[in-house]
Design a protein around this nucleic acid. Sequence first.
RNA 1: GCCCCCAUCGUCUAGGGGACCAGGACGCAGCCCUUUCAAGGCUAAAACGCGAGUUCGAAUCUCGCUGGGGGCACCA
Length: 499
Amino acid sequence: MTNMTQIKPARTRFAPSPTGRTHLGGARTALYDYLLARQTGGQFILRLEDSDRKRYVPGAEEELMRSLHWLGLEWDEGPDIGGPFGPYRQSERKDIYQEVARQLIERGHAYYCFCTPERLEKVRQEQIKNKQNTRYDGTCRGLDPEDGARRVANGERHVVRFKMPNQGSITVHDYVRGDITVENSNLDDMILVRSDGLALYHLAAMVDDQLMKITHVIRTVEWLPTFPLHAHIIRAMGWEEPIFVHPSVFLKPSGKGKMSKRESAEALKDGYSIFIGDMEPLGYLPEGIVNWAALMGWSYDGSTEFFTMPDLIEKFSLDHLNPSPAAINFSKLDHFNGLHIRSLTTPDLARRVKPFFEAQGYTVDDVTLLRVTPLIQERMVTLDDGPVTAGFFFKEEVSPQPEELIGKDMSPAESSQAAQKAYELLASLPDITKDTAEEPMRQLAEQLELSTGQLFGILRVAVTGQKVSPPLFESMEIIGKDKVLERVRTAIDLLNALA
RNA sequence: GCCCCCAUCGUCUAGGGGACCAGGACGCAGCCCUUUCAAGGCUAAAACGCGAGUUCGAAUCUCGCUGGGGGCACCA
């Protein structure tokens, strides 16, 4: 016997227009789509809303797909892989929309409109001048349908408009906000089909969602104002309504409005971006971004915050979506990224961080990298921190700032002497490892009446060339006795020159 | 201007009439750990926008106000 409460597989779709770069907001929508589909054993569909060819941006599709792949949001049907309900590109579905438009007209829910864009613009300006609402003035609304059809047959330029009832109201249901009722008189006779014959979003998306058997339409709240129109179209066609879910928008970090081009450029200067395509070179993990994005507008129990994709697939729920807009918080992204970096296995992290060393010109051998990785794992926020903190492992020689070699509260001469003693001790060891070197060095510090901070600080700069580094003796162990001695020798010379 | 939506720490959020002198997280500050930096641990400061109702009781329900956001294309 089947379980009555069994979850119905959801068919979700991410339907961006290839008119720009894939950003955080889109990624989150796609993520929610993906999670719902995976959780219920349904399908996640990628559809391209490219009905406006004028706005088509070359390369946008490629970046979109690359971004989705990178985030791990694999689609089951799409323009590149096909599927049972294709084509998945609106520009290839023109005839389908035409047919629906025809039926709408036939049923009296739409009509041909012959108004020119020029006249429409004039009307609009007039309305603005008179402080009226800008809306279609209804010139063609009352035209005899047969007359209209005749003019169309004669090749007259026309669009198709939805014939909005001028009485009554409509109640639509948004899963996040509940019922929303609006007066039809506040709704316009929106254009459904352009004069070039291609449908606009309002028609095309509704048709596609229907034909592609989409069960849940997840789209941002920008679509809420036209939601009633969409419901009118669906109901006019007698279709079953999918569940509509409108998560909130993302606001810029200040919380004042949506992210603009200017702010995006600004963020990039600080090493942040809202474009998924920028995130990888910036050193972010898809895991970190997914975790972060999932929690902007959704929560699990109010306290659990670390989620992997499998966790999310298991725990995501539409029921915990938050209707209010969320300001982007990049420092929290850093936090999640660090969390996920620390949760990676050493080989995995090594593999991921390697290109960042190479991008800085380092020649990296895997054996050394594998030893270095554990030392930097909990010191990294983004992968590009790797070469910054650990580049010295892959240098032939380091070049410390001479002043930085001076120990705290010490003179150059004292520092030099301490380094000399350390050199002798290290030279006397068969090899330098944490186990062989640390204890004797601590004793040396005591002998010299120096704090470990003083002595180790001098050596740290000498050996790594940096004031801040991974733990000293573990680092020495990887660098090897010969190079360590060489670097300490150089440091002594540098200090002597200062004295 | 018109329409729609939203409203808890600076930010992301938990909360859905009594369990809330409001919990978690980021960030910030302090302390602990410590060879630096991190990581980790502990502590602190920090919020129910305002006003009316309803109720024995409201962060939670209703209304108004205010504030914020979104939308008003032959874009999506």
